[in-house]
Design a protein around this nucleic acid. Sequence first.
DNA 1: GGGAAAGGCTTG
DNA 2: GTACGAGCCTTTCCCA
Length: 429
Amino acid sequence: MLAERARWVHRYWEHVAAELRDKELWKVYEEIERPLVPVLARMERHGIRVDPARLEAFAKELERSLDNLTREIWQLAGEKFTIASPKQLAHILFEKLGLPALRRTKTGYSTDADVLTELALGHPLPAKILEHRTLAKLKGTYADTLPALVDPRTGRIHTTFNQLVATTGRLSSQDPNLMNIPIRTELGRRIRAAFIPAAGWRFVAADYSQIELRILAHLSGDPAIIEAFRRGEDIHTRTASEVFRLPPAEVTPLQRTIAKSANFAILYGVSAFGLSQATKIDQKAAQRYIDDYFAAHPRVRAFIDATLAFGREHGFVTTLLGRRRYLPDLRSANPIARNAAERMAMNAPVQGTASDMIKIAMVRMQAALEARRLRARMLLQVHDELLFEAPPEEVAAVEALAREIMELALPLQIPLVVDVKSGADWAEV
DNA sequence: GGGAAAGGCTTG
DNA sequence: GTACGAGCCTTTCCCA
């Protein structure tokens, strides 16, 4: 029985090994994915420390605020209802109070954050709902949940990293997901601040700066973007100066914000609709910015066109190292499905190459920590960032090592920049 | 009572 | 009908 299974595994391995070679995926497997397995296993086993007391105290504060908000919301609504129910909320907002229903979902009226933000201009209730949702999210998903996930044997939280879920080659993290710990708001950072290094140790965080735009510049060979990065310019200001036809010094904050969104539009697969939604500008203006962007960066246009043509012909697109994403819908007769596949095709080489790069860095970093007999540990990867814990005397060495290894993991035509920082909790770094 | 779908929110 | 890639929470619906 066992021998039979062993023979089956052997035959299967011969089959897939040949397939990996045929598809030029041998190096991706042998030099990236397989060596990454024990690295991820160590990170999972080691876990990360959280301070349950900080989270429990925060949960109590949230509970008080939520009680008060609930009372105010019911008062404004004129009745008690389940605030977390979009269906009941829609009834209150659009039928009872007669506010304008701005957008529909499959089954009713939308009450998402965009809609409520708009409605908040004309009524006090929507803002209270938004605040309630924020606090309920923090309490339910993080403050209440994470303390219960501390393993009593290690005193730490142990996630599972998934190597085979994301279609672009990224990792994912589950049970719990430690890749979506809040950071963008002050309240959210209270959650992040509960993640702490081993007693007496420090966190070291190292993150790639503008990694996807640098990869786009490399893959497309666009001389203007390459030059901007070589000079260390602010890339969004640079884009703004191009699409608004202004000297960089005259770019306003709003123009820079729009240009930043335009850069995201390019990375995510160009759509005037998406850009207009993100920036609250009308679709015509969004289209104009995209046209102006491509006028300034013809090589980016050419790269996208060539990527789509390759994808239509072969049924897949590839990263710099040959990782594939299959997209049969590039040849779909259904324009909705085809457009969706085209956006995925534009984005996958960029997102996937960034993923290849940080995976290489992780394998080398683990090896380097061991070779130098450092006690520091790699704890988490969050797409363009690595988090370590280190004894104080190793902090400088880990910072230098992470910067060096990450910047040189996959050399491009453009210099890569890694920002490193140490701190006493995850909000500090 | 439990699983799936829907809507919503967190992150890079 | 839409921005790319994920995972988790609550409510609602449906079925055994």
